[in-house]
């Protein structure tokens, strides 16, 4: 595991910064997009960290039924449109 990924704070910050930067145009990303932030790590390792961010309520999933995407918790236009928030 790279230093970046093994440092939880730094890893979280990397992901959050990336998502914040893109937030204006897009709030949901594929897992692959997040993997690009950790070029030195294997997807299966990155998955563990990203999923902890979900249980830590930093990120949340979004699903089309067939594909899943990741975004910052509560971000995006559809959450409101669905009348669930």
């Amino acid at each position: 595991m790279s230093e970046l990924l093994s440092n939880k704070e730094l890893a979280n910050k990397t992901v959050v910064d990336f998502l914040k930067k893109k937030e204006k145009t897009k709030t949901k990303f594929y897992f692959n997009d997040l993997c690009k932030l950790f070029p030195d790590d294997k997807p299966r390792q990155i998955k563990k960290i990203i999923n902890v961010m979900v249980t830590d309520e930093i990120l949340e999933y979004w699903s089309s039924g067939s594909t899943t995407m990741y975004g910052l918790k509560g971000a995006g236009k559809q959450a409101a449109a669905e009348g669930e928030k």
């Binding site: 999923n51 249980t55 979004w62 699903s63 669930e84």
Partner: peptide
């Protein structure tokens, strides 16, 4: 369609 995916911590 709605983007809800699962229960807490699950992505499906």
């Amino acid at each position: 369609h709605g983007g809800i995916v699962g229960v807490f911590g699950y992505g499906g």
